[in-house]
Design a protein around this nucleic acid. Structure first.
Lengths: 192, 192
DNA sequence: TCAGTAATGGCACGTCGTGTCATCACTATG
DNA sequence: CATAGTGATGACACGACGTGCCATTACTGA
């Protein structure tokens, strides 16, 4: 691998996040980001497919990690059991290497820009697809696999939001288990 | 209101959908759409915020309709009861005036273009926000309101997908109730 | 020393989306 | 019938986004 100044990708991510916080996502141009990172515009688009993607780098390898974790789980576990037992202890791995401060700053930027929220929803959708395939590989029927995947991702997403809103006060696994408990309570209330 | 050739918005929607099917979303330019509709490029962006929005017009008034329906429901119903009893009979109203053929063609275009999938996810997120507020207005606590809203939207989304995949064979309310039954069965399986 | 590879720089280009002003069609009022 | 007002459209310029293409630079291995 060739080397100029190492860490071009990381410099671009840092410069972009800072500028987005300083002056907003729309008001920040790609040339501004690359200038701060000491690179050129063309290089930015070699590292990230588009301007939004600079905040979601590395998430493309989440699906395979999800698939591996699900394949390693005991085959006896049903889909809801797998979520209850596996979600909390493994969820934090997604944010490995990302500080709470970084996550909070990133959250502020995404919440301020609908276009970034769109991209985030797509990332969750990809995660859901990976979970769905994992459930199917465990012998779960299509509809149940899809529902279980959506429930897992929804629980994860809501728990992360609440966790960040509380500045990480109860840790993420605890928040996930609280959210799961509320989900069980809600869906177990009798109907009509 | 001034009038030239009436139905400019509808002509643009029709021309856009046709062109997206013929040559793809990315390959279709806005000038091509407006030329087929007998208008100019600038006029397109007066009717739709961006190129994607031409496939999602009119959905911005869904939230208020959702809020009204939820306010009219008996206050005694809990959130899960409201979903079970209210989702199926009211869900079809969202597609009022849209033929099954239109929905299928629209589905094909969206499925072929990730950028359009992103926009669709955002629309569902807005629907979820409206449902969440509706639950809170009925006295439901924040977390439960959020979970119930997500469950309702997820069920609706999965049911619509299945319904369209079967070319509308069982009608939408029946498909929704089947999906809801599967959801209840999944979440009621004991854990650990 | 020289060839090969990988990341970057530089440039042209099409498309998107917006700001601005002029123009056209219709309406209301006298 | 005349005239002013209103709302939709046309026309143009412009900045930003994102891509294709080729040259250049730095590192690697023979």
């Amino acid at each position: 691998m060739g080397r100029w100044q190492p860490g071009a990708r990381e410099r671009l991510e840092q410069a972009a996040l800072d500028l987005f916080l300083e002056q907003g996502f729309t008001e920040t141009t790609v040339p501004q980001i690359t200038a701060r990172a000491g690179l050129t515009t063309r290089t930015f688009f070699r590292h990230f497919a588009d301007k939004r993607e600079v905040l979601f780098a590395g998430e493309e390898l989440v699906p395979e990690r999800v698939a591996r974790l699900m394949a390693e789980a005991p085959p006896s576990l049903g889909p809801m059991e797998l979520i209850t037992e596996g979600l909390a202890p493994n969820a934090a791995k997604i944010f490995a290497g990302r500080s709470l401060d970084y996550l909070l700053r990133r959250r502020a930027v995404i919440d301020a820009e609908p276009a970034l929220h769109e991209r985030e929803l797509r990332k969750f959708a990809l995660m859901s697809k990976a979970l769905e395939q994992g459930f199917r590989d465990r012998g779960v029927d299509d509809l149940t696999a899809q529902l279980a995947a959506e429930i897992a991702v929804t629980t994860f997403r809501i728990a992360v939001t609440r966790w960040l809103n509380q500045h990480g006060d109860p840790d993420l696994p605890a928040t996930i288990n609280q959210t799961l408990a509320a989900m069980r309570h809600l869906t177990n209330t009798s109907s009509a």
